[in-house]
């Protein structure tokens, strides 16, 4: 750590970026779920198939959101133990 003088700032920056990414992933997942609902209203086989793909994407975005939350928590733990935080 002592070889990395900017570590506290770097961690703070990563933490902020992870929060941004998880917010974006959450918003996009919500959007994908909305698309799933909208596309299913048309009772068209092709659109229904796209809707199913959208729903799968929403879940994977949900996974990204959870990963970001876990990583941000880990960074908080590191920040607690970093001198000069």
């Amino acid at each position: 750590m002592e070889h990395l003088p900017n570590m506290p700032e770097t961690l703070a920056s990563f933490h902020s970026d992870l929060n941004r990414i998880q917010t974006m992933a959450g918003t996009l997942a919500q959007l994908e779920r909305q698309h799933y609902n909208d596309l299913n209203k048309y009772e068209d086989q092709k659109l229904a198939s796209i809707a199913v793909a959208e729903q799968g994407s929403a879940r994977q975005l949900g996974e990204i959101k959870q990963l970001c939350i876990a990583m941000a928590q880990k960074i908080e733990e590191i920040q607690q133990t970093t001198p000069g935080k």
């Binding site: 919500q30 779920r33 949900g62």
Partner: peptide
Amino acid sequence: EDVGINTSVK
């Protein structure tokens, strides 16, 4: 119903 259910697992 507008709340997405988290399905991911570690």
